[in-house]
């Protein structure tokens, strides 16, 4: 993942180093940092939304039906969603952390 500024020459840098668009950090995809991928199974999901609240990378969005949807472009694979899932109290976590190698 190379960022835009790596290819910039001095002519491309905006005058005054102004950042013109708010929230444009989302152009940079952090999914490449991941070593474990959360895999969601909706069988036990009670739509509590704890994974959405606790996700540090805002990588989980809630769908209209109320289920979490993982944006793998941004997920860094910390495993908080799997650990904090409400149903994990009963040993039935909605998320399972799978080694990224298996998706190659």
């Amino acid at each position: 993942m190379t960022s835009k500024e790596k290819t910039w020459t001095w002519r491309d840098i905006p005058v005054g180093a102004v950042v013109e668009e708010p929230g444009n950090a989302s152009e940079y995809l952090t999914g490449g940092w991941r070593s474990e991928r959360p895999v969601f199974t909706p069988d036990h999901c009670v739509q509590c939304g704890l994974c959405y609240v606790y996700c540090p990378d805002a990588a989980i969005v809630m769908t209209r039906e109320g289920y979490p949807d993982i944006r793998l472009d941004y997920c860094k694979g910390c495993g908080i969603c799997a650990r904090e899932c409400f149903m994990s109290t009963f040993g039935l976590s909605c998320f399972e952390m799978v080694d990224e190698e298996e998706f190659r």
Partner: peptide, 29 residues
Amino acid sequence: FNVFVPRLLDAREYFSAGHRACQGCGETV
């Protein structure tokens, strides 16, 4: 079950994804 957490919070994201915090950063949460 409509009193669950995400429905009490603002749905808009003011801190966008793609920032460079470490994995599992508590500060970002």
